[in-house]
């Protein structure tokens, strides 16, 4: 084991013309750690996530990632080929809308197997066995392996998307509102599943959410964003139980009680 972080972000800023997407964000992410980024709509959390996952190029600042060989690499100076390879092996990206992250016209098994085939697996039997195994781990019945995701419910699609991302054993997963658009009971199951997987696999994850309950359940650490800036960061329990910034206090007190 190493006592170095996995991802190191320094003074990251993204401007859309003169408007601020996010500004001067710095943090370290450690292996096996789940970081939640919370904030209201338009606070820049998705911009930040897209910059970190190299789907967007930031205006300034750096993000370095420790590769599997312990070499530090600047994400924004890697070649596109390296970046895309990283994204489909060592990283995962779970979209809010599963249709964005799945191939809706190919079967569930092929969706899970795609990454394996992309890194050169050419044995149908092995690919299928791995797909069956992963469907089981995300609680999708093995019989559904040849069905297209179109025939799946929203919760199943989201679980399939998670399996598709985790099949190559990534070390870092980005999640953009993973429970958005799901009803509460399905949300609870998905969170339970995610929490189990993250712990079992020792995944590091960056989870963007506006739902403080998701942050509480999944993350060890959280950052609260407003207008493109981090207004408060710290251990999740500390931030939620003892919010210091006025905005965080407002956010915590706006949670609806049943």
């Amino acid at each position: 084991m190493t006592d170095e972080p996995l991802l190191r972000v320094t003074a990251l800023s993204k401007y859309y013309g003169s408007r601020i997407g996010c500004e001067d964000i710095s943090f370290d992410l450690w292996p096996g750690e789940v970081l939640a980024i919370v904030g209201e709509s338009g606070s820049g959390k998705t911009t930040l996530l897209n910059c970190l996952s190299t789907r967007l190029l930031p205006t300034s600042g750096t993000a370095s990632y420790r590769m599997r060989d312990n070499q530090w690499r600047d994400l924004y100076r890697m070649s596109e080929a390296e970046r895309r390879f990283l994204m489909r092996t060592d990283w995962g990206f779970v979209h809010q809308n599963p249709a964005d992250g799945l191939r809706m016209t190919v079967s569930a098994g092929a969706n899970v197997g795609e990454r394996l085939m992309a890194i050169g697996d050419r044995h149908y039997g092995n690919i299928r066995a791995t797909a069956v195994d992963w469907l089981g781990r995300v609680e999708i019945d093995e019989e559904r392996i040849d069905d297209e995701p179109r025939a799946f419910s929203g919760g199943m699609r989201q679980r399939l998307q998670i399996a598709r991302n985790l099949v190559t054993g990534p070390r870092l997963v980005f999640m953009d509102e993973p429970t958005g658009g799901l009803d509460v009971s399905v949300q609870a199951r998905l969170l339970d599943l995610l929490r189990g997987l993250v712990t079992d696999l020792g995944l590091a994850a960056i989870v963007v959410t506006h739902d403080l309950a998701v942050a509480r359940l999944l993350s060890q650490r959280m950052m609260v964003m407003k207008d493109g800036h981090v207004v408060e960061a710290g251990l999740t329990d500390r931030v939620l139980d003892d919010p210091r910034a006025p905005y965080t206090q407002l956010l915590v007190s706006s949670i609806l009680q049943v």
């Binding site: 596109e80 080929a81 079967s107 092929a110 197997g113 990454r115 085939m117 992309a118 890194i119």
Partner: peptide, 22 residues
Amino acid sequence: RKMHALEEYGLMHVKLYEDIAR
């Protein structure tokens, strides 16, 4: 075009996988 340029041909096998699965 990008997939050809970067030699990312995993998708072609997804098609063959679908054939065998069906």
